[in-house]
């Protein structure tokens, strides 16, 4: 008979391999700061003013293409990403950014889902602990079936209808 921990060995190995794979995938080398990559990511953040919610990178419209050209020019002129973003917000307002900012009211759109999720997890944990608290005598399967059958007759349906 093997030691009880022995059967966990393959699972630990599995977890390690998975971690290595994820680690390798997560390490993309240096961040891509080439002008092309910056253009790509900036134009994905800017909203095409004449379309319906598309980014200027996606939109085939002439306005969007003009903005792409402008952003390319600004990158070539040495402006930083932040400066380019600010310039657009200056002209068009916050609306031009497809991703809401991390400040002011916009912060809510980021925080509320996280708060909601935390709350949900909390409720679930409380519910699970309550549901797991068990009476000392666990009913047998027969008990349970009997109770459920009676309960089912009483309040459930079928054609009879208790109420």
């Amino acid at each position: 008979m093997r030691a009880p921990w022995a059967r966990w060995v393959p699972w630990v190995a599995l977890a390690l391999i998975a971690a290595v794979a994820v680690g390798l995938a997560a390490n993309p080398g240096s961040r891509d700061d080439s002008p092309d990559a910056r253009l790509e990511s900036l134009t994905r953040e800017l909203r095409c003013p004449t379309c319906q919610g598309l980014s200027v990178a996606d939109s085939p419209s002439s306005t969007a293409r003009a903005i792409v050209d402008d952003v390319r020019r600004r990158i070539e002129a040495g402006e930083t990403d932040g400066e380019i973003r600010d310039a657009y917000v200056e002209t068009w307002g916050e609306w031009i950014l497809l991703e809401p900012q991390n400040s002011g009211v916009s912060l809510l759109v980021w925080l509320l889902p996280i708060a909601g999720l935390v709350l949900g997890v909390g409720v679930l944990v409380v519910a699970l602990t309550r549901w797991r608290r068990e009476p000392r005598y666990t009913p047998t399967t027969e008990d349970r079936e009997l109770v459920e059958r009676v309960r089912g007759r009483k309040e459930d349906p079928g054609a009879t209808g208790a109420r």
């Binding site: 994905r44 953040e45 909203r47 919610g53 980014s55 307002g93 916050e94 609306w95 031009i96 950014l97 497809l98 991703e99 809401p100 009211v105 916009s106 809510l108 759109v109």
Partner: peptide, 22 residues
């Protein structure tokens, strides 16, 4: 994400976008 811009616009008269990146 869908109604947030509408709410902000209705309450604060400010226009902002919540789009694909979000």
């Amino acid at each position: 994400g869908t109604v947030f811009p509408l709410l902000v616009e209705a309450l604060q008269d400010r226009r902002l976008s919540v789009g694909e990146p979000y």
